[in-house]
Amino acid sequence: MFLNEFYSQEDSTFRFTQHQASHFAKTVANDYNKIHDVDNKRFCVPGDLLFAVSLAKFGLSETMKINFTGMVRNDVDLQFSPLSENKTTIINANEQVLMELELAGNSSHDDEIISKIIIEYVQFSGKNFPDVMVPLMRSENLMFNPARALIMYKCMEINMTRVDVKNIALRFDEALIDVNGKRATVTFKFDFYEGEEKVGTGQKEMLLSGLIPYEESVMNGVIADYQAAKVKYLSAAS
């Protein structure tokens, strides 16, 4: 599977280098969040990469629920806890739980479909900012503080009507924002299709903290920096 270049496996443990995780974020997910830059002191592995590794290991289940409970650093030995009652976790050497996974229903281990879902999902996820999130924040006259951006990947869920699909595509449905003081939960909903038949639904949730009044000029600067980082990376890679 194409995913093998983005992590290293040894017996029951696996790990991510900064280069592997950053390369995945930028080349697969189209995600240029600075926290995934190799020279960022707060570097963390993208949650979408953890989801992708989970799919590769356990296959596609009719229901998959993931909760992100901690930030995953680079060059740390990780492993999945033993599957019990269709639940498992990603833990580090100190047994700190960094991600929870719950599975239900039938499953498929078709590498081609799993690879397709990974690519479809993470590319959709990478478009959440600025395409979807910025209009939502503007509608509430609120935004994250660029100086102390606190945006956390909370959870995601997939519900398939069947997993015996031969092809699959993701289509964006809608996005919602729920504001509670200086915090907000943003929910991105999407559907899976095989041709014109809807075969599944899903959603992901992000937590925004330390919200401040929306300023168009400031947000335009954030978007410009984000786009500049993308151009710089692609230019260096070409």
Rank of each mutant, 00 (worst) to 15 (best):
M1I: 14
L3C: 15
E10G: 14
E10K: 13
D11V: 10
T13K: 12
T13F: 09
F16Y: 11
T17P: 10
Q18K: 10
H19A: 11
Q20N: 01
S22N: 03
H23Y: 11
A25Q: 01
A25I: 02
K26L: 05
A29C: 09
D31Y: 00
N33P: 06
N33Q: 06
K34Q: 12
K34D: 13
H36R: 00
N40Y: 01
K41L: 08
R42S: 06
C44I: 13
P46L: 06
L50W: 07
L50T: 02
V53M: 10
V53K: 04
F58N: 06
G59P: 02
L60W: 05
T63W: 00
I66V: 15
F68G: 01
T69A: 14
G70W: 02
M71I: 10
R73Q: 15
R73K: 10
N74V: 07
D75C: 09
V76R: 06
D77A: 05
Q79N: 08
Q79V: 09
S81N: 06
S81K: 05
P82Q: 04
L83A: 05
S84W: 13
T88V: 06
I90Q: 01
L98R: 05
M99W: 06
L103A: 08
L103Q: 08
S108D: 05
D110W: 01
E112A: 15
E112F: 09
I114R: 10
S115N: 06
S115G: 03
K116S: 10
E120W: 02
Y121I: 00
Y121P: 00
F124E: 08
F124G: 03
G126T: 00
N128S: 01
P130H: 00
P130D: 05
D131G: 08
M133C: 10
V134I: 14
V134T: 02
V134K: 07
P135S: 15
P135W: 12
P135C: 06
P135F: 15
L136V: 04
S139Y: 12
E140R: 09
N141Q: 12
N141M: 05
M143T: 12
M143L: 07
R148D: 09
L150V: 07
I151Y: 12
M152Q: 05
Y153F: 11
C155S: 14
M156D: 00
M156G: 01
I158H: 02
M160T: 09
T161L: 06
I177G: 05
D178W: 08
N180P: 15
K182W: 08
R183D: 14
A184V: 03
V186T: 01
V186A: 07
T187K: 02
K189Q: 07
F192P: 14
Y193R: 05
E194D: 10
E194H: 11
G195C: 08
E196P: 12
E197M: 13
E197Q: 11
Q203K: 03
K204D: 00
M206G: 06
Y214R: 15
V218Q: 08
N220S: 13
N220T: 08
V222E: 08
I223T: 11
Q227N: 14
A228K: 04
A228Q: 06
V231G: 06
K232I: 03
S235W: 13
S238C: 02
